[in-house]
Amino acid sequence: MIRIERLNKSFGKLHVLKDVNLEFENSKVTAIIGPNGSGKTTLIKIILGLMKADSGKILVNNINIKKGVDYKNNIGNMPQIARFPENLRVGELIDMMKDLRSKKNGVDKDLFASFKLDNEINKKLGTLSGGTKQRVNAALAFLFNPDILILDEPTAGLDPISSSALKDKILKEQKKGKTILITSHILSDIEELAENLVFILEGKIIYNGTVKLLIEEKGKSNLERTIASLMESNANEHNA
């Protein structure tokens, strides 16, 4: 579980996150969406400790993240862009991650099997195709069976087979009671995976609730049209 209280972040004069309050519950997939530059990535990076918030606090499994780096043992992260050291082999990268993390929840190699990565173990990371790198990236996020998964554009760059395998895995982990955060521009993926939805616009939370309810409220046929109307109505408010 992740709880975010009154989080603020600015880059110079640009106020990127404005008093954000959020809670990501266990055994729920929550999608974070918003246009480019809305603050999604900043929010994720602050949770991961890559950026530091100006004010506010974040609790991961009830532990304040300012108290040290150990909370990251509970988080599996799949960054949007995967660039690994070119001259390391896939197997060595896995060993490295194993060396750096506690393995209290054991090791989960499901995705390595369903992505057929076992044949690539001895290949250097620099020689892998973009799609294979992305599969390695996804498999690493799930490798330590973490309680929390943060997936930034997980299906981007994956072929349909891998993409479905990944989505199956996400739903499987959700049923096990994990907290899962996803950002994506592919709204059909979100409709398929996510129960909850957080919509961020210019650093403010515009909507925080279930996907179903939002679609019903707006009376549209699917998520894409719902989000479009949500963005339009906010743009109108701005002009008014």
């Binding site: 991961l48 890559l50 780096v69 990251k72 043992n73 992260n77 960054p79 660039r83 690994f84």
Partner: peptide, 11 residues
């Protein structure tokens, strides 16, 4: 990017 990935680990 890899440095960022390592920063997301407990180090």
């Amino acid at each position: 990017e890899f440095t960022e990935m390592l920063l997301a680990q407990p180090i």
